[in-house]
Amino acid sequence: MIGASARRVWGLIYRHLCLYRRSWPRLVELAYWPILQMCIWGFTARFFTSRAVGSEHSSGLVMAATALLAGVLLWEVAIRSQMGVAISFLEEIWSRNLAHVFISPLRPWELILGLIGVAFLRVAAGVVPAILVAYLLYAFNLFTLGPVLVLFFANLMIMGWAVALGVVSLILRHGAGAEALAWSLLFGLTPLSAVFYPVSALPVWLQPISRAIPATHVFEGMRAVLLHGHVAWGQMGWAIGLNAVWLTLAGLLFASQFHAARIRGALITIGE
Protein backbone atom coordinates (compact mmCIF):
# COMPACT_ATOMS: atom_id res chain seq x y z
CA MET A 1 0.00 0.00 0.00
CA ILE A 2 2.74 2.45 1.02
CA GLY A 3 4.87 1.20 -1.87
CA ALA A 4 2.07 1.87 -4.38
CA SER A 5 1.50 5.28 -2.87
CA ALA A 6 5.21 6.13 -3.05
CA ARG A 7 5.27 5.04 -6.70
CA ARG A 8 2.40 7.34 -7.57
CA VAL A 9 4.14 10.26 -5.85
CA TRP A 10 7.36 9.37 -7.67
CA GLY A 11 5.41 9.20 -10.96
CA LEU A 12 4.40 12.82 -10.56
CA ILE A 13 7.93 13.90 -9.60
CA TYR A 14 9.37 11.92 -12.53
CA ARG A 15 6.97 13.70 -14.90
CA HIS A 16 8.37 17.08 -13.84
CA LEU A 17 11.99 15.89 -13.85
CA CYS A 18 11.53 14.84 -17.49
CA LEU A 19 10.18 18.30 -18.24
CA TYR A 20 13.25 20.02 -16.77
CA ARG A 21 15.71 17.56 -18.24
CA ARG A 22 14.41 18.43 -21.68
CA SER A 23 14.37 22.20 -21.25
CA TRP A 24 17.51 24.15 -20.28
CA PRO A 25 15.65 27.50 -20.30
CA ARG A 26 13.43 26.18 -17.51
CA LEU A 27 16.51 25.13 -15.51
CA VAL A 28 18.17 28.50 -16.04
CA GLU A 29 14.99 30.31 -15.03
CA LEU A 30 14.98 28.45 -11.69
CA ALA A 31 18.30 30.02 -10.68
CA TYR A 32 17.97 33.30 -12.60
CA TRP A 33 15.79 35.29 -10.18
CA PRO A 34 17.50 34.23 -6.93
CA ILE A 35 20.91 35.10 -8.43
CA LEU A 36 19.57 38.40 -9.77
CA GLN A 37 18.16 39.31 -6.35
CA MET A 38 21.42 38.39 -4.71
CA CYS A 39 23.38 40.57 -7.16
CA ILE A 40 21.10 43.61 -6.73
CA TRP A 41 20.97 43.50 -2.94
CA GLY A 42 24.57 42.33 -2.57
CA PHE A 43 26.02 45.25 -4.53
CA THR A 44 23.65 47.66 -2.79
CA ALA A 45 24.83 46.42 0.61
CA ARG A 46 28.47 46.60 -0.48
CA PHE A 47 27.99 50.19 -1.66
CA PHE A 48 26.61 51.34 1.68
CA THR A 49 29.16 49.47 3.79
CA SER A 50 32.07 50.80 1.68
CA ARG A 51 30.84 54.37 2.28
CA ALA A 52 30.76 53.75 6.01
CA VAL A 53 34.31 52.37 6.36
CA GLY A 54 36.09 54.07 9.23
CA SER A 55 32.98 55.78 10.57
CA GLU A 56 31.49 55.09 13.98
CA HIS A 57 28.54 53.30 12.30
CA SER A 58 30.75 50.97 10.31
CA SER A 59 30.22 47.77 12.32
CA GLY A 60 26.47 48.37 12.56
CA LEU A 61 26.19 48.83 8.82
CA VAL A 62 28.19 45.67 8.14
CA MET A 63 25.87 43.76 10.44
CA ALA A 64 22.82 45.25 8.70
CA ALA A 65 24.27 44.30 5.31
CA THR A 66 24.87 40.74 6.53
CA ALA A 67 21.29 40.50 7.77
CA LEU A 68 20.08 41.88 4.44
CA LEU A 69 21.95 39.23 2.43
CA ALA A 70 20.79 36.44 4.73
CA GLY A 71 17.23 37.78 4.47
CA VAL A 72 17.34 37.87 0.67
CA LEU A 73 18.60 34.28 0.48
CA LEU A 74 16.16 32.89 3.04
CA TRP A 75 13.17 34.72 1.57
CA GLU A 76 13.99 33.09 -1.77
CA VAL A 77 13.49 29.72 -0.05
CA ALA A 78 9.87 30.61 0.79
CA ILE A 79 9.17 32.17 -2.60
CA ARG A 80 10.71 29.31 -4.63
CA SER A 81 8.92 26.76 -2.45
CA GLN A 82 5.54 28.42 -3.02
CA MET A 83 6.14 28.87 -6.74
CA GLY A 84 7.43 25.31 -7.04
CA VAL A 85 4.13 23.83 -5.86
CA ALA A 86 1.84 26.29 -7.63
CA ILE A 87 3.64 26.34 -10.98
CA SER A 88 3.99 22.55 -11.06
CA PHE A 89 0.21 22.36 -10.64
CA LEU A 90 -0.21 24.93 -13.41
CA GLU A 91 2.03 22.81 -15.67
CA GLU A 92 -0.64 20.09 -15.54
CA ILE A 93 -3.27 22.63 -16.58
CA TRP A 94 -1.14 24.12 -19.36
CA SER A 95 -0.45 20.65 -20.81
CA ARG A 96 -4.20 19.80 -20.53
CA ASN A 97 -3.17 16.75 -18.53
CA LEU A 98 -5.08 17.43 -15.33
CA ALA A 99 -8.03 15.19 -16.18
CA HIS A 100 -5.69 12.24 -16.87
CA VAL A 101 -4.01 12.81 -13.50
CA PHE A 102 -7.28 12.95 -11.58
CA ILE A 103 -8.79 9.84 -13.22
CA SER A 104 -5.72 7.86 -12.20
CA PRO A 105 -5.59 6.28 -8.72
CA LEU A 106 -3.48 9.24 -7.51
CA ARG A 107 -5.02 10.53 -4.27
CA PRO A 108 -5.26 14.31 -3.78
CA TRP A 109 -2.79 14.16 -0.87
CA GLU A 110 -0.38 12.18 -3.06
CA LEU A 111 -0.68 14.92 -5.67
CA ILE A 112 0.26 17.46 -3.00
CA LEU A 113 3.21 15.33 -1.84
CA GLY A 114 4.41 15.01 -5.44
CA LEU A 115 4.16 18.76 -5.98
CA ILE A 116 6.03 19.37 -2.71
CA GLY A 117 8.76 16.97 -3.89
CA VAL A 118 9.09 18.92 -7.14
CA ALA A 119 9.11 22.20 -5.19
CA PHE A 120 11.92 20.92 -2.95
CA LEU A 121 14.07 20.20 -6.00
CA ARG A 122 13.19 23.60 -7.49
CA VAL A 123 14.24 25.33 -4.25
CA ALA A 124 17.56 23.48 -4.31
CA ALA A 125 18.14 24.35 -7.99
CA GLY A 126 17.24 28.00 -7.37
CA VAL A 127 18.73 28.85 -3.99
CA VAL A 128 21.99 26.86 -3.94
CA PRO A 129 23.48 28.84 -6.89
CA ALA A 130 22.46 32.11 -5.16
CA ILE A 131 24.19 30.96 -1.95
CA LEU A 132 27.32 30.27 -4.01
CA VAL A 133 27.12 33.70 -5.67
CA ALA A 134 26.80 35.34 -2.24
CA TYR A 135 29.93 33.53 -1.09
CA LEU A 136 31.97 34.22 -4.22
CA LEU A 137 31.00 37.88 -4.71
CA TYR A 138 30.53 39.11 -1.17
CA ALA A 139 32.31 36.50 0.96
CA PHE A 140 28.99 35.92 2.71
CA ASN A 141 28.59 32.39 4.01
CA LEU A 142 24.96 31.63 4.90
CA PHE A 143 26.03 28.50 6.77
CA THR A 144 27.66 30.62 9.48
CA LEU A 145 24.13 30.82 10.90
CA GLY A 146 24.80 27.31 12.18
CA PRO A 147 22.58 24.21 12.49
CA VAL A 148 19.50 26.35 13.17
CA LEU A 149 19.60 27.18 9.46
CA VAL A 150 17.88 23.81 8.90
CA LEU A 151 14.93 25.03 10.96
CA PHE A 152 14.87 28.35 9.10
CA PHE A 153 14.82 26.53 5.75
CA ALA A 154 12.15 24.04 6.88
CA ASN A 155 9.83 26.70 8.26
CA LEU A 156 10.11 28.90 5.19
CA MET A 157 9.52 25.96 2.85
CA ILE A 158 6.47 24.86 4.83
CA MET A 159 5.08 28.39 4.74
CA GLY A 160 5.63 28.35 0.96
CA TRP A 161 3.61 25.12 0.71
CA ALA A 162 0.75 26.60 2.75
CA VAL A 163 0.56 29.70 0.54
CA ALA A 164 0.81 27.51 -2.58
CA LEU A 165 -2.10 25.36 -1.41
CA GLY A 166 -4.10 28.56 -1.07
CA VAL A 167 -3.11 29.56 -4.62
CA VAL A 168 -3.99 26.11 -6.01
CA SER A 169 -7.36 26.31 -4.20
CA LEU A 170 -8.02 29.69 -5.84
CA ILE A 171 -7.08 28.26 -9.24
CA LEU A 172 -9.50 25.37 -8.66
CA ARG A 173 -12.18 27.91 -7.72
CA HIS A 174 -11.53 30.62 -10.32
CA GLY A 175 -9.69 28.74 -13.06
CA ALA A 176 -6.82 30.11 -15.09
CA GLY A 177 -7.82 33.67 -14.09
CA ALA A 178 -6.09 33.08 -10.76
CA GLU A 179 -2.81 31.99 -12.39
CA ALA A 180 -1.03 35.28 -11.71
CA LEU A 181 -1.26 34.62 -7.97
CA ALA A 182 1.27 31.82 -8.40
CA TRP A 183 3.92 34.50 -8.98
CA SER A 184 2.64 37.37 -6.94
CA LEU A 185 0.94 36.24 -3.73
CA LEU A 186 3.99 35.67 -1.56
CA PHE A 187 5.75 38.77 -2.91
CA GLY A 188 2.80 40.70 -1.50
CA LEU A 189 3.66 39.42 1.99
CA THR A 190 7.26 40.65 1.80
CA PRO A 191 6.67 44.04 3.53
CA LEU A 192 4.92 42.28 6.42
CA SER A 193 7.34 39.37 6.87
CA ALA A 194 10.20 41.24 8.56
CA VAL A 195 12.60 40.05 5.88
CA PHE A 196 14.73 43.18 5.64
CA TYR A 197 13.80 44.99 8.86
CA PRO A 198 12.49 43.97 12.30
CA VAL A 199 8.78 43.88 13.15
CA SER A 200 9.33 46.93 15.37
CA ALA A 201 9.96 48.98 12.21
CA LEU A 202 6.32 48.48 11.17
CA PRO A 203 3.46 50.70 12.38
CA VAL A 204 2.03 49.39 15.64
CA TRP A 205 -1.30 48.46 14.06
CA LEU A 206 0.46 46.29 11.42
CA GLN A 207 2.61 44.40 13.90
CA PRO A 208 -0.04 41.83 14.98
CA ILE A 209 -0.65 40.97 11.30
CA SER A 210 3.08 40.61 10.77
CA ARG A 211 3.38 38.33 13.81
CA ALA A 212 0.72 36.00 12.35
CA ILE A 213 3.09 35.21 9.49
CA PRO A 214 5.51 32.31 10.24
CA ALA A 215 8.31 33.92 8.19
CA THR A 216 8.33 36.94 10.51
CA HIS A 217 9.49 34.73 13.40
CA VAL A 218 12.10 33.04 11.20
CA PHE A 219 13.61 36.39 10.26
CA GLU A 220 13.47 37.70 13.80
CA GLY A 221 15.25 34.48 14.80
CA MET A 222 17.79 34.99 12.03
CA ARG A 223 18.58 38.51 13.30
CA ALA A 224 18.92 37.16 16.84
CA VAL A 225 21.60 34.73 15.64
CA LEU A 226 23.44 37.34 13.57
CA LEU A 227 23.24 40.26 16.02
CA HIS A 228 23.29 38.54 19.40
CA GLY A 229 24.76 35.15 18.59
CA HIS A 230 21.98 33.08 20.15
CA VAL A 231 19.06 31.06 18.85
CA ALA A 232 15.68 32.59 19.73
CA TRP A 233 13.82 29.37 20.43
CA GLY A 234 10.66 31.25 21.30
CA GLN A 235 10.56 32.68 17.77
CA MET A 236 11.16 29.19 16.35
CA GLY A 237 8.29 27.85 18.42
CA TRP A 238 5.98 30.54 17.04
CA ALA A 239 7.11 29.83 13.48
CA ILE A 240 6.47 26.09 13.86
CA GLY A 241 3.11 26.59 15.57
CA LEU A 242 1.89 29.15 13.03
CA ASN A 243 3.03 26.92 10.17
CA ALA A 244 1.03 24.03 11.64
CA VAL A 245 -2.07 26.23 11.83
CA TRP A 246 -1.69 27.78 8.35
CA LEU A 247 -0.82 24.46 6.69
CA THR A 248 -3.86 22.79 8.27
CA LEU A 249 -6.12 25.63 7.15
CA ALA A 250 -4.63 25.59 3.65
CA GLY A 251 -5.08 21.79 3.48
CA LEU A 252 -8.72 22.10 4.48
CA LEU A 253 -9.24 24.88 1.92
CA PHE A 254 -7.66 22.72 -0.79
CA ALA A 255 -9.80 19.72 0.16
CA SER A 256 -13.00 21.78 0.07
CA GLN A 257 -12.15 23.45 -3.24
CA PHE A 258 -11.10 20.14 -4.78
CA HIS A 259 -14.46 18.63 -3.82
CA ALA A 260 -16.31 21.71 -5.08
CA ALA A 261 -14.39 21.47 -8.38
CA ARG A 262 -15.51 17.83 -8.72
CA ILE A 263 -19.12 18.93 -8.23
CA ARG A 264 -18.88 21.79 -10.74
CA GLY A 265 -16.93 19.73 -13.29
CA ALA A 266 -14.07 22.22 -13.11
CA LEU A 267 -11.41 19.48 -13.21
CA ILE A 268 -12.44 18.78 -16.81
CA THR A 269 -12.81 22.34 -18.04
CA ILE A 270 -10.09 24.11 -16.05
CA GLY A 271 -7.63 25.90 -18.33
CA GLU A 272 -10.01 26.02 -21.29
Partner: peptide, 28 residues
Protein backbone atom coordinates in the same frame (compact mmCIF):
# COMPACT_ATOMS: atom_id res chain seq x y z
CA UNK B 1 -9.97 0.89 -15.12
CA UNK B 2 -8.76 3.48 -17.60
CA UNK B 3 -9.91 6.01 -20.12
CA UNK B 4 -8.93 7.17 -23.58
CA UNK B 5 -9.98 10.33 -25.34
CA UNK B 6 -8.39 12.35 -28.11
CA UNK B 7 -9.67 15.47 -26.35
CA UNK B 8 -7.45 15.13 -23.28
CA UNK B 9 -3.77 15.56 -24.06
CA UNK B 10 -0.68 13.96 -22.60
CA UNK B 11 2.20 16.29 -21.70
CA UNK B 12 3.53 17.29 -25.11
CA UNK B 13 7.12 17.97 -24.05
CA UNK B 14 7.61 14.49 -22.63
CA UNK B 15 8.46 11.67 -25.01
CA UNK B 16 5.99 8.87 -25.55
CA UNK B 17 8.15 6.54 -23.45
CA UNK B 18 8.35 9.07 -20.60
CA UNK B 19 4.60 9.61 -20.69
CA UNK B 20 3.94 5.89 -20.52
CA UNK B 21 6.42 5.56 -17.64
CA UNK B 22 4.64 8.34 -15.74
CA UNK B 23 1.30 6.56 -16.07
CA UNK B 24 2.95 3.23 -15.33
CA UNK B 25 3.98 4.72 -12.00
CA UNK B 26 0.61 6.40 -11.37
CA UNK B 27 -1.15 3.05 -11.91
CA UNK B 28 1.55 1.14 -9.99
Amino acid sequence: MNFSSPYIALPGRLTVRENLRVYGHLYS
